[in-house]
């Protein structure tokens, strides 16, 4: 996983609430066995018309935002399906940070596994950042994960909260599985204990 430390970039304003994962990447694009290559389908129905032409009014089709690396949105971003294809599509497009008042749980979790930083900030702050983002290419926002700050184009610094464990994994680009395998002795012990205490639970076998 690519570490996330500090990012200064153009932010795309997406003033919509309840942006669901079907909107981020429709189910018909999930038939892949790869993680990469989904960026072209990011926000497919918002971004393209029925004939596959770009909709000029959609933010990511406008020149300043074609290379945006930050996305600013309204409440409950990423609701719906558990598909990790949603953060994969964002990442493949180039988005490394999503800022919103709140996120759906599974999407929020999936972001961290892919080096995307989801930042929760109050709606009043989002409104300010949204206005900043609307100014386009000359209005770059900085995200400093170490300091836990979003820096507005005006220089104003806004603090955000983040789980310390997740912050460490992001900063160092660490793989979760590697972390967990450091606890393998405890997992072995748990299994031995429960396999005797809950021996009534059978193993799964599929007989023809």
């Amino acid at each position: 996983m690519k570490p996330f430390t500090k990012l200064t970039a153009v932010a795309a304003p997406l003033p919509m609430a309840n942006v669901d994962t079907d909107k981020i990447i429709p189910a018909r694009f999930l038939k892949t066995i790869e993680r990469s290559g989904l960026g072209v389908h990011l926000f497919d129905t918002l971004r393209y018309d029925a004939e596959g032409r770009e909709r000029p009014d959609f933010v990511l089709n406008q020149p300043p935002y074609r290379h945006a690396q930050i996305l600013i949105a309204h409440e409950n971003f990423g609701c719906g399906s558990s598909r990790e294809h949603a953060p994969w599509a964002l990442l493949d497009f180039g988005i490394r940070c999503v800022i919103a008042p709140d996120f759906a749980d599974i999407f929020h979790n999936n972001c961290f596994k892919n080096g995307i930083l989801p930042v929760r900030l109050p709606r009043s702050v989002i409104d300010q950042l949204m206005a900043d983002a609307k100014l386009g290419a000359n209005s770059r926002i900085t995200i400093d994960l170490e300091a836990q700050e979003v820096v507005r184009p005006s220089g104003e610094r806004i603090h955000f909260d983040i789980d310390p464990f997740r912050k460490k994994l992001l900063l160092e680009g660490l793989d979760d599985i590697g972390q967990t395998l450091q606890h393998v002795a405890a997992i072995d012990a748990y299994e031995a204990k429960t396999q005797s205490e809950r021996s009534f639970i059978p193993g799964i076998e599929v007989h023809p």
């Binding site: 558990s82 990790e84 599974i106 979790n109 999936n110 596994k113 599985i177 967990t180 395998l181 393998v184």
Partner: peptide
Amino acid sequence: GIGTSEVEHVLAT
């Protein structure tokens, strides 16, 4: 529900 990275995590650990 979990994402694919967590599917891998559960398969492995």
